[in-house]
C-alpha cells in the first residue's frame, strides 16, 4: 500500500511549533524542545525534541536533516506511526523511525524496531533490526485487516 506522503515536496517550507527554539547558527542547526510539531505539506510530526541540521551552501540555509527524539508520532492522511525516534532525511527524502515502531495504516497494525518510509516511492519497509545496530533478533508482528468485499 502506498503512503499518501508519496511525492511529498521536501523543499516546501516547514512550519515548526515548539515551546522553545534555539537557533545555533554557528553549528548550522536549530534545536526545538517541548511539544514540537513539525508540518510540511501533508506530513505532521510530533516529538518531544527535534534538531534540524541545515547547510549554507548558497548563503541561504537549506534544511538537510531533521532528528526527532521522544514520543515521535508521524501523522499523514494515510497512516499513523509512532516510535521513540525519527529521522527525516530531507535531502534523501527518506523518513526513518526507530525504537518500538508501530505503524497503523488503514486499520492494519505493524510493530517492529525500524520503519523506513521512502517519500519518492511512498513505500515503507519494516524490519526488526534495532535502530542502527545490525541483526538484533526481533520480530515484526502485524495484524492485517482485510477489506470486506461487498
Amino acid at each position: 500500500q502506498v503512503s499518501a506522503l508519496k511525492g511529498l515536496d521536501s523543499s516546501a517550507p516547514v512550519d515548526v511549533d515548539a515551546a522553545r527554539i534555539e537557533v545555533q547558527d554557528a553549528a548550522n542547526q536549530a534545536v526545538f524542545s517541548g511539544d514540537v510539531v513539525i508540518r510540511q505539506g501533508q506530513l505532521t510530526l510530533y516529538a518531544d525534541n527535534v534538531k534540524i541540521l541545515y547547510t549554507r551552501k548558497t548563503g541561504d540555509p537549506e534544511m538537510q536533516r531533521l532528528d526527532a527524539r521522544g514520543n515521535v508520532r508521524l501523522i499523514s492522511p494515510s497512516e499513523r506511526a509512532t516510535a521513540n525516534n525519527g529521522i527525516y532525511d530531507v535531502a534523501g527524502r527518506i523518513i526513518t523511525m526507530t525504537g518500538n515502531v508501530t505503524l497503523d495504516r488503514g486499520g492494519s497494525m505493524l510493530k517492529g524496531q525500524r520503519l523506513v518510509l521512502n517519500l519518492d516511492t511512498g513505500l515503507s519497509s519494516f524490519d526488526s533490526r534495532g535502530p542502527g545496530t545490525t541483526g538484533t533478533p526481533g520480530r515484526v508482528t502485524g495484524r492485517f485487516v482485510v477489506p470486506q468485499r461487498k
Partner: peptide, 24 residues
C-alpha cells in the same frame, strides 16, 4: 550577530523551503 538565539514561551518558526523564500 545571531550566532545563538533562544525563542521561548511558545515559538513558531517557518523554515524557508529550499527553492522559494519563506513566504512562498
Amino acid at each position: 550577530q545571531g550566532r545563538t538565539l533562544v525563542m521561548d514561551g511558545g515559538a513558531h518558526l517557518r523554515i524557508r523551503g529550499r527553492t522559494g523564500r519563506a513566504g512562498r
